[in-house]
């Protein structure tokens, strides 16, 4: 007999990569996700792409939100994506980027597999709604 009482919760990794010490935004997002009922794992500051991959794989998150304000997104995001592919974790993980990303870089990031790039002025509701709608079915 198998009485299934499924209780799924959306798991998110809020990640800070590289030499970027600005984490107010990441904290605000973490808090907003928590209040939206998500389970949020916060990476802490100055993480290498490898560490983000390790965390994403072990924690089996549905969503990775990478916060980058340093301008290094074109270097760091591809490394995270490569790492996820190595562990077969790319296909069913929703990858978001938040921070300061010029428009001309957005298309490139999306081509790599980033689902959405949220710039300054994005509302919390918008981000949360996007996660709810796009979190992968597993």
């Amino acid at each position: 007999m198998s009485q299934s009482q499924e209780e799924r919760s959306i798991r998110c990794l809020v990640a800070k990569v590289g030499l970027d010490g600005h984490d107010r935004g990441a904290h605000v997002i973490a808090r907003a996700f928590r209040d939206a009922g998500f389970e949020v794992i916060y990476s802490g500051l100055h993480k290498a792409p490898d560490e983000i991959v390790q965390a994403a794989v072990q924690e089996d998150v549905d969503v990775i939100g990478i916060s980058i304000l340093s301008g290094a997104h074109n270097t760091l995001v591809p490394k995270v994506i490569e790492g996820l592919k190595e562990y077969d974790a790319f296909e069913d993980t929703l990858i978001l980027v938040g921070g300061v990303v010029p428009d001309e870089d957005k298309a490139h990031l999306k081509e790599l597999g980033v689902a959405e790039v949220f710039g300054p002025g994005t509302s919390m509701e918008q981000t949360i709604e996007f996660v709810r709608e796009n979190a992968p079915e597993r």
Partner: peptide, 8 residues
């Protein structure tokens, strides 16, 4: 919801 901060 939860913030899981032990990993840091």
């Amino acid at each position: 919801g939860a913030v899981l901060g032990d990993r840091i």
